[in-house]
Structure formats: structure tokens, C-alpha cells
Design a protein around this nucleic acid. Structure first.
Lengths: 144, 144
DNA sequence: GTGCATAATGATAATGATTCCTATTCTCGT
DNA sequence: ACGAGAATAGGAATCATTATCATTATGCAC
């Protein structure tokens, strides 16, 4: 995924947003993560390289630019990950015990099934679907 | 749903938990809601009849007793609703604009499709699924 | 290259949701 | 009615997150 760098650079440039050292560090940390990360986790990973307040502001800016997407998970903490146009569409495995979240990408046929369920569920109604998220709750290998 | 009352009474009695005035008010408020409610919303609905601290404690007790289930939705606020064994299994329509969440219950065939997707996604792996939640994000009729 | 307008940073204060603490009140079984 | 344990209420404390603002860095015009 070496061109994540380029895609992000391009998107930020287009939006007139600087791709500063701190923001680059955030993107790098999210790039190597295998699931959404909370601000606290990122701060720990970045080992004080980015102060918490700057980290939050970077995440906010990057979210506005749609480079990063936020999720609201267990215990009221917000988790962030690279947006799907960078990583591909995926879903989440949420561990009920330790709270960690891993990405899972369904094979095309299953994803197609999901989409048709979403369409069927909203076709009758007054709701315009823009996206969907399937969260599978259970126990990860560590906590099983 | 007149027997929600009885089911809750029974469950709490079994657990040695009292079904006090305040807790009854919380259950009643959740019973008439058409989707998960935040503590703040409940507090507003209950018109100060239940102080915030008591409300939170009631929600915590009821969650522990599995009478109420918590969800983590938009903007980092926790929302609560009656557990699925009381209301039936359902999913959520989340409005990207105003943040409200509505319940949606799929017809059996669609729910069966969902379950088989979940099974297929986890069968290979080291993850034991216990439940699933499909959140459909979009715009409600108000915000369309 | 210099200077300037603007953007980004980082330390701290403020906010908002939630939890903890503790004295008082209520309830149930005796 | 009495006493033990449960529940309440109010406030203080905590945690995640956001706002403020003075300082620093960056990109661009000259």
C-alpha cells in the first residue's frame, strides 16, 4: 500500500491542507494498523511524538478531508481508521471481552448479499442508505 | 407489549434486584421509544423525575441484568434500549445528519441471509461470533 | 533569499458524558 | 415496628474530547 501516501498527499493538496510531519505520523500509524485505533492508542503508539491535543486536531482535520473515518465503539471511545476509498470496503469483528476491533473484508459474493439485504430493508421506507456497517460481536482468539 | 413488565419483573427478581420506582420509570421510557435513547434524552423525557446520577446507575444495573443493552452510536454518546430477548432481534438505521437511530426488523428471509453471511465470514477464522449488528447509515425522512 | 500572510502546533483550560463517593432513605423479611 | 441490606440523590471526580491562544513553521510573492 505504498501509494496510500500519494493518494493522501493528493487529496490534502486539493483541499488546501498541509501534509505536515504530525499528520504524516498519524496516517502512517493508521496505515499499519489492522483495525480502527483510538486516540489514546495512537498516542501511545506515537510515543509522544505527537502531543494529544495535536493528535486530536489532526484526526479532526483528516476526518473532515475524508482521509480518515471515525467509528464509535465500546466504552464510548472513538476509533479512527483510513477511509474506505483508501483501504477498501470492510467490516468489523468486535471482541466482547477485550474490546479490540479487527477489519474483515468479505469476498465479493457475500458483500453482494449484504448490499441486497440493505437495499431490501430500506426500499420500502423513507430512509436513503449511504453506507452500511456489519459489526460481528464475539470473542477473539486471545479471549476465546 | 404489556408483558414486558412481567418479564422484567421476573428477571430482576431472579437476580435479587429490586424493581424500584426509578428503574420502572426507565424501563417504561425505553418501552415506548422507537430506538435507543441516550441518558440525556431519557433524563429529559423523565422530566427530572429521576436525577441523572440515579438514571446512570439504574441503566448500569439494568444493563448488568441484561434487561437493557447499550449501543455506541454517533458522537460518542451511549444509547440504551431494551434487550433483544424483550423486543426481538433488530437492526439500526442511523441518520448521518441528525444522529437519531431507529430500529428496523428484517423479515425472516433477510435475517437468515444476514446470519449466513456472518457464519461464512467467521467460519474460517479464530473468531467465535455471538451476535451481529447491521447499522445502515443514511439520511432519515426529516433530513433527506 | 526575505518577508509576510496564513496554517499548524502545543500547552493549557474548558466542556460533556459518565462514574464514583457518601450520607440518607427506603424496603423487605422477621 | 426493627434492623440489615439495597437504593437514592447530590456532588465531586474522572475520562475522552474540544476550544483557546500564543508561538512556530510553511508556502508564496517579490
Amino acid at each position: 500500500m505504498a501509494n496510500t501516501e500519494q493518494l493522501v498527499t493528493q487529496r490534502l493538496t486539493e483541499s488546501g491542507i498541509r501534509y505536515s510531519r504530525g499528520r504524516r505520523a498519524v496516517i502512517d500509524a493508521l496505515s499499519v494498523a489492522d483495525g480502527p485505533r483510538s486516540a489514546a492508542e495512537l498516542h501511545r503508539d506515537l510515543a509522544e511524538a505527537v502531543p494529544l491535543s495535536s493528535l486530536y486536531r489532526s484526526l479532526s482535520v483528516l476526518t473532515d478531508a475524508d482521509v480518515v473515518t471515525m467509528h464509535h465503539g465500546s466504552r464510548g471511545v472513538t476509533r479512527y481508521e483510513l477511509s474506505e476509498w483508501l483501504t477498501g470496503h470492510h467490516h468489523h469483528l468486535v471482541c466482547l471481552s477485550c474490546g479490540t476491533v479487527d477489519d474483515i473484508t468479505p469476498p465479493p459474493d457475500l458483500e453482494a448479499d449484504l448490499e441486497s439485504v440493505v437495499i431490501s430493508l430500506t426500499v420500502a421506507g423513507r430512509f436513503s442508505p449511504k453506507g452500511h456497517a456489519l459489526e460481528i460481536e464475539g470473542f477473539c482468539s486471545e479471549c476465546a
